[in-house]
Computed example of a mutant assay.
Amino acid sequence: MTKFAPRFWEKKPLEKLSEAEWEALCDGCGKCCLNKLEDEDSGEVALTRVACRLLDDQTCRCAHYENRHQFIPECIVLRPENLDTHAYWMPQTCAYRLLWQGKPLPGWHPLISGDPNSVHSAGVSVQGMTVSEFDTPEEDWEDYIIEEPI
């Protein structure tokens, strides 16, 4: 595991983070890999329990993270330079979104707790609660909307 400066995310702007620091901000909740519905009128985004086919619902990680675009070309690669256009798609508890909004990381975040499983222990991840996009027709996704934050 890479060693980071204590609370580096509070000392550096997002655009100055190293690749490893940027990746370490991910709490491993898996919510970014849930299919979302956007209200055409309000622009409001709702998370569903319908998971991307690449999400491992037990680890809450992408099963093919490094080459996910070969399978899911539309998968968003979140970067500091595109947060203005993509952060609203991210879950309310997402570290990237929180820091972009000037908010602190929650106490259950693995960078604060020191425990990579704290996101699951806190009940904030999608561990064991998703349904497959293969088994769930898109017209039924509204039936699987979840309230945030979970």
Rank of each mutant, 00 (worst) to 15 (best):
T2V: 14
T2K: 11
F4S: 09
F4P: 10
R7I: 04
W9T: 08
W9N: 02
W9P: 07
K11C: 03
K11N: 08
K12W: 07
P13C: 06
L14E: 03
L14W: 03
E15D: 12
K16G: 01
L17S: 06
S18V: 05
S18T: 15
E21N: 05
E23C: 04
E23F: 05
A24G: 03
L25K: 09
C26M: 01
D27P: 07
G28N: 02
K31N: 01
C32V: 05
C33Y: 02
C33L: 10
L34E: 11
N35E: 12
L37E: 05
L37Q: 08
L37M: 14
E38I: 01
E38H: 05
D41E: 14
D41V: 12
S42W: 08
G43K: 07
E44M: 06
E44S: 08
E44W: 03
V45F: 09
L47E: 02
V50M: 03
C52T: 12
R53Q: 14
D56V: 05
Q58R: 12
Q58K: 09
T59H: 10
R61G: 02
R61N: 10
A63E: 15
A63V: 09
A63F: 11
H64W: 00
E66K: 13
R68M: 01
H69V: 15
Q70L: 15
P73V: 09
P73D: 07
P73K: 06
E74P: 04
E74D: 15
C75F: 06
I76E: 11
V77L: 15
E81N: 13
E81R: 10
N82F: 06
N82Q: 12
L83M: 13
L83Q: 06
D84L: 11
D84A: 15
D84K: 15
T85D: 14
T85F: 08
T85R: 14
T85S: 15
W89H: 12
M90I: 03
M90Y: 05
T93K: 10
A95H: 11
L98T: 05
L98Y: 04
L99A: 06
Q101A: 03
Q101Y: 00
Q101M: 06
P104G: 02
P104L: 08
L105S: 07
P106I: 04
P106S: 10
G107D: 15
W108H: 08
H109Y: 11
P110G: 04
P110Y: 11
S113E: 04
S113W: 06
S113V: 04
S113L: 01
G114S: 08
D115M: 02
N117G: 04
S118R: 09
V119A: 11
S121A: 15
A122K: 12
A122M: 01
G123R: 13
G123N: 11
V124F: 07
V126G: 09
Q127C: 14
G128M: 04
M129T: 13
T130K: 00
V131L: 00
S132K: 01
E133K: 13
E133W: 14
F134Y: 14
F134S: 13
F134H: 13
F134D: 03
D135N: 09
T136H: 05
T136G: 12
P137C: 04
P137Y: 00
P137D: 03
E139G: 03
E139H: 13
D140Y: 04
D140P: 03
W141V: 00
E142P: 07
Y144E: 01
Y144N: 07
E147P: 02
E147M: 05
E147H: 10
E148K: 00
